[in-house]
Amino acid sequence: MSRLAPFFGFMLLVALFGFGIWWNTRHDQREVPSPLIGKPAPEFVLPLLDDPARTVSKASMLGKPYLVNVFASWCIACGEEHPVLMAEGRTLGIPVVGYDYKDAPEDAKAWLARHGNPYDMVIADREGRTAIDFGVYGAPESFLIDAKGVIRYKRIGPFTPEVIASELKPAIAALQKEAP
């Protein structure tokens, strides 16, 4: 028995190593879990991309759930996500708000003109100041905010059809079920 102890020790290390590999293929190590889920979304007042004189605020959005999708024309992963939003954005049943992050307005407009605009409205955060309140650390990121202004779900990284079907749509369905 004691002669086999080193072997068992070795097998334990192998198992640990295998578990580490398995775990890392399923989890993105870089993903920072948001502490904001289940908490009220931060207050924000941001201008519309198309009409900077008009602003959208948290208060003005209260009353119905909506999805905020952080994107930028310089963001490559947003380009990958874009066709998915073009195809599925309208099928979600809630408004999709584009959040143009640290972007020159003309770049963003040109980008939307070239690839299509899947958003019901686009708000612009040129300095990225409000994005800090949202805990944004990269694009794309998306927040599902309920009718009371509480963040219910966050997606870090691009939406794929699979993620929309397995995570976003059930989250939206849950919101609509609890609405009177």
Partner: peptide, 8 residues
């Protein structure tokens, strides 16, 4: 910062 970005 922790409030926004977690203990990370």
């Amino acid at each position: 910062l922790v409030d926004r970005y977690s203990d990370f």
